[in-house]
Simulated assay, not measured.
Amino acid sequence: MDLRQLRHFLALARHLNFTRAAEAACITQSAFSRSIQGLESELGGPLVERGSRGVLLTAKGEALRVRASRLLDEASNLRDEMAAEQPSATSSRLSFGVGPLVAARLVPEALAVFVGDFAHTALDVRVGKPSELLELLDEGEISFLVADLRHMDIGTRYLVKPLRFRRFGLVCRSGHPLLQQTKPHFRQLMDYPRVSAMLPLELRGLLQEHWSERGPALNLETQHNDLLPTLMAGSDSIGVLQLEVIDSLTRSGEFQRLRCCDEPALLRDGGACFVIVQRADQLLSPQARSMIETLEQIDEPARAQPHGNALPCAS
């Protein structure tokens, strides 16, 4: 039994639905079910009753819910108390990792708040692939990382805090030829250059399936998000970006959201599952804990942007 399994069980006790609980924990439903089954096996009996009307806690499950809540609270308090005992310094350093998608908006906003509170802290922000950042975390090079969960193999030696799910859409410059049509088809986008930040694996596979007939599905997939607005503004390139990034671009009037009449459902419903990951055996500095709290505070008030429905195609 580990703390991660207890967190999964509490998510199930709260939602009483395996699908919603797995989404809240930011893992696949099959992995979530295995976690609960492993806990039941270790504790010697069923914790929930599965039926057509949903999930109910057994007597053993209700007893575990009370004790698990207390245990997780005590574990959190212990980490905070131990970290508070570390000697402070007038100057310090904070190193953490950031996946390319997270670097587009969430982390810059959190850094703007953080530097006001820790003016004497040197920052080392490593932007890279989630799998590479996980290696840096294991080696002690960074205190924590923020990235898309589904690009990493997370074991029980980590603590994982889920953030809000990010959805994606299409964007282009305001004078783009496709905007002259009221109902463009998704395959028409193959006639124009296509660019994106590093995409979730399932979205990259979707674009490969639909757009790779005459060349690469994407002309450019970059870790450097700041390249894309200038590139799209000076060409007929179409961007595949997070909706919150698209919203910030369209507010300037220079760009417009591009909607297709037959937009694939996966493009509308798929996305990135951002999480904060730290090692379970590593105490965080006050600076690291403050940065994580800032990331959570900035992420929490935001609401997932409505993606709307695809337009009907012309017959």
Rank of each mutant, 00 (worst) to 15 (best):
M198W: 10
L94D: 01
K161H: 11
L284H: 04
D191G: 12
G38V: 08
H151M: 14
S131L: 13
L228W: 12
V102S: 14
T90Q: 13
E254K: 08
G51E: 02
R79G: 04
R20A: 09
M152L: 12
A119V: 11
H185K: 11
P108K: 02
V245P: 04
A119K: 09
E244F: 01
G51H: 08
Q223Y: 11
W211N: 04
L12Q: 00
P264K: 02
E263L: 03
R303F: 07
Y158G: 10
F168D: 03
L56R: 15
Q297H: 13
C172T: 06
S237E: 03
F32E: 01
I154S: 07
E296M: 15
E202S: 12
L258Q: 00
G97V: 12
H8P: 03
L145V: 14
A122P: 00
C26F: 08
L149I: 09
S252T: 14
A197P: 11
L16V: 05
R173W: 03
R166F: 01
E109T: 09
Q256P: 02
L149K: 15
L101K: 08
P177T: 01
A265E: 15
A233Q: 12
G308E: 02
S131T: 15
H15T: 01
F114G: 04
F96S: 08
Q188W: 06
D236F: 01
P193Y: 01
R126P: 08
L243Q: 05
G270D: 03
L111E: 11
R214W: 09
R164E: 07
H8K: 00
H210P: 02
F9E: 01
G234K: 06
S88D: 02
S235E: 03
L111R: 10
D247R: 07
R34P: 08
P229A: 05
L199A: 04
D226R: 12
G140H: 10
E254V: 10
D281R: 11
Q256H: 07
L189M: 14
Q188P: 06
G61E: 00
D262I: 02
K161D: 12
L295E: 06
V171F: 09
Y158R: 12
E109M: 08
A265S: 13
S33A: 13
V55W: 02
D2R: 11
D2Y: 10
R164H: 08
S174A: 13
S92L: 00
P312M: 05
F96K: 05
D281L: 11
S248N: 07
H8G: 12
